[in-house]
Nucleic acid binder design. Structure first.
Length: 552
RNA sequence: GCACCAGUGGCUCAGCUGGAUAGAGCAACGGACUACGAAUCCGUAGGUCGGGGGUUCGAAUCCCUCCUGGUGCACCA
């Protein structure tokens, strides 16, 4: 907020320099205003002089001198200016500008950090999208939490978010699932039957089979059609998946079924439309999509010679339906194993006349699960995976959410079960949550001691002059901008890092300065700071779906 | 072979799209509770940012090229 005000001032100075003939307008928009990394380099720093020097063929220091003169006029909130290094202009903001932030934060309350930059744009976030062939595995867990955190961030920044889960209950995977279920069913009835070679071996298949035995007895034993087994398995597994998601606080607005794309004729119409544009052809009995028209290396089959579509076709049709449902922005959260499919889908929607730049794909790398320093292999079919449910049993929802959000999507995520199950000092989740709990504790103490809180108007925020207090205030000031960039860049991990840093600043402050002292004026001011900090922790944690405990 | 992602202290990772002296957290070592909660804090040590070139005032960040790891590259999904 302060930063954006200063940016306006800086832009005005630039325009003034143009008007004065000090430099041309060619450097417009090329300079930045940033928070320097090191202390003693001001609250903000601009590289304007360096950038303009290159363009104008002048010395950076000369330009910096002119800029300083222009900024001098803004003495009302600038405390000091200096030229440093190769030509940075460092700007020190007056302390009271930071201090007066406290009442602003309190007035904003739960809305502090939230914004309207999204302008109500309709965004669909598609995530999880696991086929109902088994319980959610750790990999799905990452995606679920990443996607949900992104959705929450977008909501917090004024987007109209729609969460969708896309699944396929038709293909080969599901057929194998049905066959696996039938095999277990017959096994339970004591009838010899070979288990499918690539069947699903998890214990949950036995549970489903048992449910079928309980409901239908042996009435299905001669049933050759796999449909009832498949249907039972799908129902059972989906109930399980939904329960797991609900446990994590994740809810979808819609489950979109691939089957409906066939039933509603969207598959056929996509092919027809591509054909009319001359983008498909037949060869070797299959139908090919000319992806080479979009710069790809080779064309791809969309309908096999058997007449069955490949996965690409429904994926393209599905994305067309997303566009038809009038979303302004389509965010897809996929595992990195989908890398190859993305370009084909984008080519498809482009071919159908839609703007592929409205699609943003977040590809997250895999989760490697380690236990006692050894890697645990995960495979749904062989049932050696650790499920999300098992993980939640071990570490709880907050720890799981926090761990999965700690890494940017591009990074592989090592989930050390040994470490995550250790409830204790190593765990950064508690570090942050303890910050919030501690703040609450101070407020409780104040109440118990009978401290009467003065109205904000009677409290002097300029008493918050300790170096640690100013650091906290500056960090708070950066909170809304951080949320905004984390949302727009679909990067929840930034929120986590911000909160860890803020917690560090606060714990440090707590150990050095007392809030409740004999000095009532100071105590009152610090209590307001505590109030404001508590709000920032609480808002930050909640925006990404974590809880903010008052006690631990 | 091709494409995408990654390579940053012993380990796990940030580094806000080119800024100044590269940062956390674990682990190690040394300290701080008659205290608003020690689930905390303070201090010490530890890195030629995978290697090599290049671009410019300035590179962990951009370009080229090698090396290593992961994931894909089907008429599987």
């Amino acid at each position: 907020m302060i930063r954006s005000q200063l940016k306006i001032v800086l832009d005005a100075c630039f325009a003034q320099g143009v008007a004065d003939g000090a430099w041309s307008d060619r450097g417009a928009g090329k300079f930045t205003l940033e928070v320097p990394r090191h202390e003693g380099q001001g609250d903000f720093s601009t590289n304007m002089a360096l950038v303009l020097a290159g363009i104008e063929k002048k010395k950076p220091r000369d330009i910096a001198a002119i800029l300083m003169q222009l900024l001098e006029m803004k003495k009302d909130f600038i405390d000091a200016l200096e030229v440093a290094g190769p030509g940075f202009v460092n700007i020190h903001i007056k302390a009271d500008v930071w201090q007066r932030l406290v009442p602003e934060v309190l007035a904003a309350g739960e809305n502090f950090g939230r914004s309207a930059v999204g302008c109500g744009r309709r965004v669909m976030v598609e995530f999880v999208s696991a086929n109902p062939t088994g319980p959610l595995s750790i990999g799905h867990g990452r995606q679920a939490i990443l996607g949900d955190a992104i959705a929450r961030l977008l909501e917090a920044t004024g987007h109209d978010v729609y969460r969708e889960y896309y699944y396929n209950n038709a293909g080969r995977q599901m057929r194998v699932l049905g066959e696996s279920t039938r095999a277990r069913y017959l096994e339970l009835l004591g009838i010899a039957h070979p288990f499918p070679e690539d069947g699903y071996q998890g214990d949950y298949i036995r549970e489903i089979a048992q449910a079928l035995v309980d409901e239908a007895g042996d009435s299905l034993k001669d049933h050759q059609d796999v449909t009832p087994f498949k249907a039972k398995a799908e129902e059972f597994i989906f109930r399980d998946i939904s329960a797991t998601l609900a446990r994590m606080g994740i809810h979808f607005d819609n489950y979109y079924n691939e089957q409906s794309l066939y039933e509603d004729g969207h598959i056929d119409s996509v092919v027809a439309e591509l054909r009319s544009k001359g983008l498909v052809y037949e060869q070797d009995g299959a139908v090919w999509f000319k992806t080479t028209e979009f710069g790809h290396e080779k064309d791809r089959v969309i309908i096999k010679s058997s007449g069955e579509p490949t996965y690409r076709l429904p994926d393209i049709a599905y994305h067309r339906e997303k566009f038809r449902r009038n979303f302004d922005w389509l965010v897809d959260i996929f595992g990195s194993d989908h890398i190859a499919t993305v370009p084909d889908v984008l080519a498809g929607v482009q071919a159908l006349g839609y703007d592929a730049s409205k699609v943003t794909v977040v590809l997250h790398q895999f989760v490697t699960l380690t236990r006692d320093g050894k890697q645990v292999k995960m495979s749904t079919r062989k049932a050696t995976f650790v499920t999300v449910d098992e993980l939640l049993d071990l570490v709880g929802v907050d720890v799981a959410r926090f761990f999965f959000m700690m890494r940017k999507a591009d990074s592989q995520l090592e989930f050390d079960l040994g470490l995550a199950t250790k409830e204790g000092q190593e765990n950064p989740v508690y570090y942050v949550q303890y910050g919030h709990a501690r703040l609450c504790s101070i407020l409780r103490q104040a109440e118990e001691k009978g401290v009467v809180r003065l109205p904000a108007a009677e409290v002097d925020p300029t008493l918050l002059g300790e170096a640690e207090e100013l650091k906290l205030l500056k960090s708070m000031a950066a909170f809304p901008g951080m949320i905004e960039s984390a949302a727009l860049e679909l990067a929840p991990h930034r929120v986590i890092f911000f909160l860890m840093e803020l917690a560090g600043l606060f714990h440090s402050y707590y150990n050095k300065h007392k809030v409740l002292t004999e000095d009532t004026g100071l105590s009152q001011a610090r209590l307001y700071l505590v109030d404001a900090l508590r709000l920032v922790f609480s808002n930050g944690l909640r925006i990404v779906g974590l809880t903010a405990p008052e006690r631990m």
